[in-house]
Amino acid sequence: MSELSATHFLLLSAALFIIGMVGVLTRRNVLVIFMCIELMLNAVNVSLIGFAWELHQLTGQVFALFVIAIAAAEAVVGLGIVMALTRRADTVDIDELRQLRE
């Protein structure tokens, strides 16, 4: 542990990911849940970068770039959905959105 290694990156990644997951599980506000998902995606990037650094590879960075691209796309669509939801149901409370049952 004395020298910086991928293990550090992985621990940080795990911590961020699990914080994000707990947020998704516990929060009721769709917007916050959305931010937590971004957090989780970011955590994945951290581990990818860590491996890339340790192994002198560029593949990890390339993958992280794709994850960022997909996260951006997800942000656009997800926020669009949030807009549509608030217009129709006038709420951002995930517990009020039960249309999935129908």
Binding site: M21, L25, R28, I94, R98, L100, R101
Partner: peptide, 14 residues
């Protein structure tokens, strides 16, 4: 089982 609550689905995934 199908509550329609997204939170429950997320819980199941976790």
């Amino acid at each position: 089982l199908q509550t329609g609550l997204v939170a429950n689905y997320a819980l199941m995934i976790a």
